[in-house]
Amino acid sequence: MNIDSINNGIVIDHISAGNGMKLYELLGLAELDCSVAIIKNVVSQKMGKKDIIKVDADIPVDLDVIGFVDPGATINIIRNGSLVEKRNIEMPERLVNVIKCRNPRCITSCEQELDHVFKLTDREHKVYRCIYCETKAN
């Protein structure tokens, strides 16, 4: 894969340096058959350093996941070698089955069929809390 040129795919740009791997994991990119590139610590005029993820296939990505990990990231959709769409990311109000509650006393720890749901309770400080036990996500 030539990481500079994607014909049909997605480029997640302006990821704060260090968040690339986290996004890779939470977006489930490890399970894809197509080429996926994580480029770390790219020099950026605006951000100092940033990470970039390129996926060589036009797959649906969960914008909520990106909004949760890094609301400053941007998404570029590439078709036939050219940029067809640019999307800005917003912090989602709710996160469903993106992360798991880590509180061992939480009802989700013993009832497997429950969705793991987190609610944005403090936008300014980017705080998400489990809707069941109110434990903070981190």
Partner: peptide, 23 residues
């Protein structure tokens, strides 16, 4: 004993639910 159990109960019950202590 589990935190959030009363919330799950309220979400699924068709009658009012009172939390008498969840962990």
């Amino acid at each position: 004993p589990k935190e959030g159990a009363a919330y799950v109960t309220a979400k699924n019950a068709s009658v009012p639910v009172i939390n008498a202590g969840d962990g």
